[in-house]
Design a protein around this nucleic acid. Structure first.
Lengths: 174, 174
DNA sequence: ACGGATGCTGCGAAATCCGCACGCTCCGCG
DNA sequence: CGCGGAGCGTGCGGATTTCGCAGCATCCGT
């Protein structure tokens, strides 16, 4: 009940003329906020004063900006772990083809704990879903029993992870 | 130069008899460390004292454990953003087929800034790569010019993101 | 010109972080 | 068996950070 911050933007009626929104209700970010985000992408626990020094703002101003970014759902500050280390030994990307309403299938899959990532795509799959499981049995059950049981799922194709080579969270740091 | 903590486990010769490792040099995590990680997955800036109260440890002990988890690369505490909000409007998952050494291709792709996620897989693709770009031109260039130019890449198939429905970092919180 | 909203600053109080000394337990070893 | 070191936890001050708030400047819309 947290950290599924995507696709739930601007549900609040009073963020109306907030900071001029570009098209789809996505809040506009100025260069300073971007710089703050970069700082927190390097270290999510960096003190506000240090960030302020780096971006040229007072401690209090940084604090208020960060709080707003958090409230708006623009960013989250979280611990990210290596799944293998915390006991999830099988992961897979699953491509899904759907008949009927794609979005309702996506919602159903998003409701499953084992689905860590759900995205609607253009191409030979309608949906791509990342699955995190404890072992092979678990993975098998999720793919063959649970995902295929969702109404509207026509077919699936699985790509079991052999080795994770890179995982970054440095958008905006380019 | 940070946060690519995967596949670089136990490079240190002196973490020998650390906390008994299970098979591949992956450090073992006890229930308390798991609980600490859960706390930080909910809020990466939660005070050590509050975590200590939740898991039954002193503030100092939590602090030392967190520091160790960070040092070992078991977890990172970072800001995670919605790519759309920070100005990256095109994303895609790209399946890659390789001839020759898969890992060297994976390394080459991992070296590209636009590749946010690189994983070796079993299935009809050898590699799956997530790409984050600013616009269509950028995406086109990355896929058709850069990725296909990597020696060993036989073919690619792209899945352009239409809508991100779920993105979680709650492993271990089940 | 006037409210009202927004955003930044400065400041004191409270809470947190940090280093360090100390104690405990668990081995390995002479 | 006793010693010593490593690993891990606690408690404790002092430095640092967080937090709430008042004050001020700017930018609108009316």
């Amino acid at each position: 009940m947290h950290s599924e911050f995507v696709a739930s933007r601007s549900a609040d009626p009073k963020d109306s003329r907030d900071a001029r929104e570009s098209r789809h209700g996505t809040p506009h970010l100025d260069a300073v906020s971007l710089a703050i985000i970069e700082q927190l992408q390097e270290d999510g626990r960096r003190p506000y004063a240090a960030i302020g020094k780096a971006v040229g703002l007072s401690e209090a101003a940084v604090r208020q900006r960060v709080q707003k970014l958090l409230d708006q759902g623009v960013m989250q500050i979280v611990a990210v772990t290596d799944p293998l280390t915390v006991g999830f030994r099988r992961q897979a990307m699953v491509g899904v083809n759907v008949e009927g309403d794609v979005e309702s299938v996506a919602d159903a899959l998003a409701g499953m704990d084992e689905c860590e990532y759900v995205v609607m795509t253009a191409g030979s799959f309608d949906l791509m879903v990342e699955i995190v499981c404890e072992d092979d049995d678990h993975l098998l059950e999720v793919i063959n029993k649970r995902i295929r049981a969702v109404p509207g799922v026509r077919s699936t194709e699985s790509f079991v992870y052999l080795k994770l080579k890179k995982q970054t969270y440095m958008w905006g740091t380019r």
